[in-house]
Design a protein around this nucleic acid. Structure first.
Length: 602
RNA sequence: GGUCCCGUGGAGCAGUUCGGAGUGCUCGUCGCCCUGUCAAGGCGAAGGUCGCGGGUUCAAAUCCCGUCGGGACCGCCA
């Protein structure tokens, strides 16, 4: 046995106990005749007293040690109230160096800031630090809590393939060459969506998985090419059932950090969220709701406001901004693809000023501040144009106002379910970007192609696709979408109609999703589920800004792992063997890879 | 695909606006001293192609162009 006790657990009651400790030198304080080292293991630190100067002199930061000694109460007045072990110390009788350490690339020290690049290159050192290590340990606890909740509810944990079939939905796939089928490729799953639905057909009834997912898209602070979902699917349930399970899981996770979420979590419709906050993931920790002014300006002579939608958001105290700051908002808006951000300043005397004000009629000027809820000294920002883009801009402005004016109470947790999202959205923008939208139709799925329309729309969504609502629900926390799900389509005919709406031909349906449609033909049960963005959930719980903090070995924005250097070139031999360069087969033949009997091409 | 920010001894920064000697700060490293510290302290020392390439200039860390790397955002991510 290398150690008998963990360093951070020693207390006064252990006085006079002979202990064997093992850990790292966190810090050395050498006084010549006596030296102190803080010995750190995963449980914490304890002070070790070394009387032999020749031994102490040799020790350096992060040396890995075995310490034999006796626990002793510290001399009167030398206690350290900042440490859990601060009342005692270990009088070393023997020190064995288990391993030496080179000088460190950065200090393994809590109170110093270190660049992220250096941290990730030496992540094994970074994780020795309390903060980074704590985030990873917290994630483990959160995983356990979620599993416990779901096991208690009779869920079955099932692993699904990570080498699977490319489907044309959603994001770009990561592809893996199939050595045994040269020219054919596996795809890494963007989510276990199709498999979990098949598991419902398989009668598993309650499935969950902490599932690794892969999407080959550009990075953000909250996006990695491989990420984790807590994936849940249930049979014979309605929306309220799934939401109930989601709340059980999430409330248990937040209880783990000592926060009790008031249940049930309130609901907000998608339409309300867009109208009041300009986003489908509103941060409800502050107000500054958008005001729609389309009717208010219905008869305006100001051409900019003669638009299908005019809206506003108020910046409290914004009238005192300098010209430079107001110009800054214009740049800010242009960066978001807008022409600019019109504004009106409300003077201390209530008089309106700014470039827009003189274009407004007497009546408009008189009623404006009251209509948008602006007080003297405020700034009113406007957006006019198509409702969707104008609200997007105002929603972003609202968040920026919240940040700049420090309106957000960062100690609060605000949860909300956003429900009743549309089934479809127009694909005009998706088409521009190329090949990622499902199908070639004018409509694409807001949630995904397997989301059921609400019962009242099932027979009629083709008549008014823009208005049809879906049985979908997103959970939003502090302005982050942390989970989303839906009641699924479980009837083959309905699934085929939804695909058709999105312009997916029967042939393509057979080719890409034939296995799912076939499964639905055998008594598929009604089912639905939810998936949580587990990295983001853990990041929120850990109180960190980036999901990289809750991933043991995250990748940089270029997709490179700074530690291993992956991805890396392959050898000629690997290349030849992998089948990367196999001649592509004809598309018609490719169709055969699924179901030759059902070929209906040409 | 686009916009912006950053790159200066091992770490974190300042210096760049307005060109004038590799100048400065905190930490670390190495050596010596030190018997009660706990982010120990004192004295001393080493350590830099200022990311890289080109240009302007008598002179470039500083200005210009390009490029590489890191980060944030827009697009994209059902």
């Amino acid at each position: 046995m290398i150690r008998t006790r963990e360093a951070g657990t020693l207390r006064v009651v252990d006085e006079r106990e002979q202990v064997l400790l093992a850990g790292w030198v966190a810090r050395r304080r050498d006084h010549g005749g006596v030296a102190f080292i803080d010995l750190r293991d995963s449980s914490g630190v304890v002070q070790v007293v070394i009387r032999d100067a020749s031994i102490a002199e040799e020790l350096r930061a992060e040396y890995c040690l075995k310490v034999v000694g006796e626990v002793a109460r510290r001399p009167e007045g030398n206690e350290n109230p900042d440490l859990p072990t601060g009342d005692i110390e270990v009088l070393a009788t023997e020190i064995e160096i288990l391993n030496r350490s080179d000088p460190l690339p950065f200090p393994v020290d809590e109170h110093l800031s270190v660049g992220e690049d250096a941290r990730l290159r030496h992540r094994y050192l970074d994780l020795r630090r309390e903060g980074p290590g704590h985030a990873i340990r917290l994630r483990s606890r959160v995983n356990r809590v979620a599993r416990e909740v779901l096991y208690d509810l009779d869920f079955v944990e099932i692993e699904t393939p990570t080498l699977t079939r490319a489907t044309p939905e959603g994001a770009r796939d990561f592809l893996v060459p199939a050595r045994l089928q040269p020219g054919s490729w596996y795809a890494l799953p963007q989510s276990p969506q199709l498999f979990k639905q098949l598991l419902m057909v398989a009668g598993m009834e309650r499935y969950f998985q902490i599932a690794r997912c892969y999407r080959d898209e550009d990075f953000r602070a909250d996006r990695q090419p491989e990420f984790t979902q807590l994936d849940i699917e249930m049979s014979f349930v309605d929306q309220a059932d799934v939401i109930g399970v989601g709340e059980a899981v999430i409330s248990a996770c937040w209880r783990e950090i000592g926060h009790e979420i008031p249940l049930p979590i309130p609901h907000l419709t998608y339409a309300d969220a867009m109208a009041r906050y300009g986003t489908d993931k509103p941060d409800l920790r502050f107000g500054q709701e958008l005001t729609e002014l389309t009717s208010f300006f219905a008869d305006t002579s100001f051409r900019v406001f003669q638009a299908p939608y005019v809206g506003a958001v108020v910046m409290p105290g914004g009238a005192s901004q300098t010209r430079k700051q107001l110009d800054g908002w214009q740049d800010w808006a242009k960066q978001r693809g807008a022409k600019g951000l019109a504004y009106v300043l409300v003077g201390d005397d209530g008089e309106l000023s700014g470039p827009v004000a003189k274009n407004l009629s007497e009546k408009e000027r008189a009623g404006l501040a009251g209509r948008v809820g602006a007080a003297a000294g405020d700034c009113i920002f406007f957006a006019a144009g198509e409702a969707s883009s104008a609200r997007l801009l105002l929603g972003a402005a609202r968040l920026e106002i919240g940040r700049r004016c420090e309106l957000i109470d960062t100690t609060q947790w605000s949860f909300v379910w956003v429900v009743d999202a549309p089934v479809f959205e127009a694909t005009s923008k998706a088409q521009d970007s190329g090949d990622v939208a499902v199908g070639a139709g004018a409509w694409t799925a807001v949630h995904h192609a397997f989301t059921s329309p609400k019962p009242e729309w099932i027979d009629s969504f083709e008549k008014d696709p823009a208005a049809a609502l879906s049985e979908a629900y997103d959970l939003v926390c502090n302005g982050n979408e942390i989970g989303g799900g839906s009641i699924r389509i479980h009837r083959r005919d309905l699934q085929e109609r939804v695909f058709a709406m999105m312009g997916v031909s029967i042939e393509e349906q057979r080719e890409k999703f034939g296995f799912l449609l076939d499964a639905f033909a055998y008594g598929a049960p009604p089912h639905g589920g939810i998936a949580f963005g587990w990295d983001r959930v853990c990041a929120l719980l850990a109180g960190v800004d980036s999901i990289r903090e809750v991933i043991a070995f995250p990748k940089a924005a270029s997709g490179v792992d700074p530690l291993t250097g992956a991805p890396a070139p392959i050898t000629e031999a690997q290349r030849a063997e992998a089948g990367v360069d196999a001649e592509p087969i004809e598309p018609d033949e490719a169709t055969e890879t699924y179901a030759p009997k059902d070929r209906a091409t040409g």
